[in-house]
Write a protein that binds this DNA or RNA. Structure first.
Lengths: 212, 212
DNA sequence: AATAATGGATAGCACTGCTATCCAATGAAG
DNA sequence: CTTCATTGGATAGCAGTGCTATCCATTATT
């Protein structure tokens, strides 16, 4: 398959695929001559994956690059794999969060929550949580202890189900953790919206209407 | 307080505040002369809110504008309020999702999940869910029925806690729902990462390391 | 009266994610 | 074996977002 075929199969313009090739997001095709290359199914998959990560996952192309690097180099240990996967996701999401000076109080609270759950106190994640709690406070909608407990419980339940879906083979596991987590993040938030509508309606009867 | 004071109290550059004023994201100060205006606490709050929504909430300025409009015009009914709040959030998040042609199968599955939960079948939300499930499939990480059930359960638990935090006064309720939901979305996903690390470590012992 | 700051307007800038154009080398068609 | 479209490769440009910098006449401040 030549580049035009790749474009046709994926629905992505040739110029954009050339751009992805330049950026190293899609591997070069097998050169059949100095000005011609041949592409296969793995190229089709790659292009589709890039689009899924950007369009549904909300990643930037820089983030996609990190995720792809993680996918191409799956660590042997399942736990190390998770670390690599999260590293790729977090790098994109929280660019400048780490260096931000965050108050001592909120940082301690974040650490306390993590400790109470017995979670591993990952410095990047904890800093992230602290910033988020601080921002909520600043915006006038502080997260109460009870509310936070419920969020933690929900996270634990979800994480248990997440890990249960991870296959044994390293490459497949990596894909499942990285891409699966990213895409189901969005699903989880959508479901939260549904459930909020339901809970709200339960209080007041059905005067519901479409949103959007 | 003059504009320089507003800049100092919020940590946002004067030029940026002028930009927000131009864009209508922050209300004009009270004019004390033709070339001078006075700003108060509500202006400080607004600037901080804009930053919280963009930096932690991940909204574009266009999205911030919608959210602020909703905050400034809180409906009387709590349920209508939730609709307005979600409308403001969804408009920014799912720009071109609705018109996207999505397969019949995945659409039916989304509707089935919503029906099984007894949720209100909001067309925008359902379309969104269908697109997300389709994208996960396309990316090679389909969401299984059991996994989806767990996500739904978690969403319901979280939503119950969410609604419990909503105060009675319409303006405060609006702020809580819109800003609170947006900011705790991020918190929820961070907690999910923590819990995933924990679950992963439980299987293999503590060979964990920092991510990022 | 001198200096500094203000609001208002306009222009520009850095970054992202493409898109369009050009080119020589090549492959397919008659 | 010539013609003509297509390819890979390179370079430049473009639209949108979120600021940032400069200028200016007017107004405070000292």
């Amino acid at each position: 398959m030549r580049i035009s075929g790749l474009a046709e199969r994926t629905g992505v313009p040739v110029a954009t695929i050339k751009y992805y090739l330049r950026e190293g997001l899609v591997p070069a095709g097998e050169a059949t001559s100095r000005t011609q290359a041949s592409y296969g199914d793995r190229h089709v998959d790659r292009v589709r994956l890039v689009r899924a990560l950007t369009e549904s996952g909300g990643l930037s192309l820089a983030g996609v690059r990190d995720v792809l690097a993680a996918l191409d180099d799956p660590p042997a240990s399942r736990h190390a794999l998770l670390g690599a996967a999260q590293g790729a996701l977090l790098a994109d999401e929280s660019a400048d969060v780490a260096d931000d000076a965050v108050g001592e109080g909120v940082r301690r609270r974040a650490a306390a929550v993590v400790a109470a759950r017995g979670w591993y106190d990952d410095p990047v994640l904890t800093a992230r949580l602290a910033v988020q709690l601080r921002d909520a406070e600043r915006a006038g909608v502080p997260v109460g202890d009870e509310h936070l407990e419920v969020l933690c419980d929900a996270a634990e339940r979800v994480a248990r189900a997440d890990l249960a879906t991870v296959p044994a083979a390293p490459a497949a596991a990596m894909r499942q953790v990285v891409v699966g987590t990213l895409l189901t993040d969005a699903v989880l938030l959508t479901l939260r919206r549904f459930a909020q509508q339901q809970e709200s309606g339960r209080d007041e009867g059905a005067d519901g209407q479409s949103v959007g």
